[in-house]
């Protein structure tokens, strides 16, 4: 597991441009919304002497009296909804490029986007399967909560129900994490095995289940690293009570987001190498793709194949 994490970091470093692209696209999406938000506030309130109040921090009275402003909060919310959906699709799109690039060990923008495009159809299908799979922990959590509530009917304290709920959330989170790992490994299956979404998902279920500890270990190791960086940057972040302060705050925030983008690629790398170690060697089918010698991959990327070709190839097998 530790080796896989190390290799994940190495891989992410060697293709740091992938992280940069993820960060840039992330920034582009979020910046669009942030600017719209800022412009709406500016149009309505730039001359209303409220900027100073907002510099001090959260201002409930400003928010409550926004009711009377002509700005449309609902249009902003609609925009936000579309942005989230749009970014979710883009993220599915980019993940093919990230995996293939990690396997290749070198970054090339045309290849990155070509790979992204190559797998997007099947990755979207996997995303749907992942979404459906997530219903299981959600339903289980609802049942768990209902049981807790029924048991609490005769309780005299809310504490057991609170603990029960926290445990339920933790279990749901672990189950969700399990399906997330399956989703990730299924993507590896698609890239390395040209597998169909269903076959990849089924295969990933087996692999993750068999090697649950190492997959969970990698995931939580990265969660811990992200949390530590968050704590560090939170301690360093300025309050942002002046123009310079706001600039410094924004820089700190972006440092965190950039580090998260890098860690995201590193975590995919870690999971990928763990997947390679976990997968029975006989199942691997190298087919001449170019890979980085330093990463010693045991799988290859099918290059320049259309989805139709891959499907035909898969069916012929």
């Amino acid at each position: 597991m530790t080796k896989a994490i190390q290799r994940g970091f190495k891989g992410a470093l060697s293709v740091w441009q992938a992280s940069a692209w993820i960060y840039a696209i992330n920034l582009l999406f979020a910046l669009g919304f942030a600017m719209a938000f800022k412009n709406i506030l500016s149009e309505e309130f730039a001359n209303r002497d409220v900027s100073a109040r907002l510099l001090e921090g959260f201002d409930f009275t400003f928010l409550s009296d926004l009711n009377y402003a002509s700005l449309s909060v609902s249009s902003l919310m609609a925009m936000l909804g579309w942005l989230v959906v749009g970014y979710a699709l883009v993220s599915v799109f980019l993940s093919g490029g990230v995996i293939a690039t990690l396997l290749r060990g070198t970054f090339s923008a045309p290849d990155f986007f070509a790979d992204s495009a190559r797998y997007v159809g099947r990755f979207l299908a996997l995303a749907v399967l992942f979404g459906l799979a997530l219903l299981a922990p959600l339903i289980a959590f609802s049942i768990f909560l209902a049981i807790g509530r029924a048991m609490a009917e005769s309780a005299t304290s809310e504490a057991p129900l609170v603990i029960w709920t926290i445990v339920g959330i933790a279990i749901a989170f672990l189950k969700g994490a399990y399906f997330y790992l399956v989703f990730e490994v299924a993507k590896f299956e698609v890239v390395t095995e040209n597998a169909s979404p269903f076959r990849a998902f089924a295969s990933a279920l087996k692999i993750v289940t068999r090697h649950l500890a190492s997959f969970y270990g990698i995931l939580f190791a990265f969660l811990v690293i992200v949390s530590l960086i968050a704590l560090l940057l939170h301690a360093l972040a300025p309050e942002g009570k002046s123009g310079a302060g706001v600039f410094a705050l924004a820089l700190t925030q972006q440092a965190f987001v950039a580090s998260r983008a890098f860690l995201r690629v590193a975590s995919i790398g870690g999971l990928l190498w763990n997947y390679q170690d976990a997968k029975p060697k006989k199942e691997l089918s190298p087919s001449g793709a170019q890979v980085s010698p330093s990463l010693e991959p045991t799988t290859q990327v099918a290059e320049s194949q259309s989805d139709a070709e891959i499907k035909a190839e898969s069916e012929s097998k």
Binding site: S42, V84, G240, Q253
Partner: peptide, 29 residues
Amino acid sequence: LTAKPETTGFWKWAMNIMFWLQNLFLFFA
């Protein structure tokens, strides 16, 4: 009402909202 516009506070909240949104996005990828 002020003669000069002042938007630093709006920038701060725009940056904050952008930050939260970016982190939300990073749950996807």
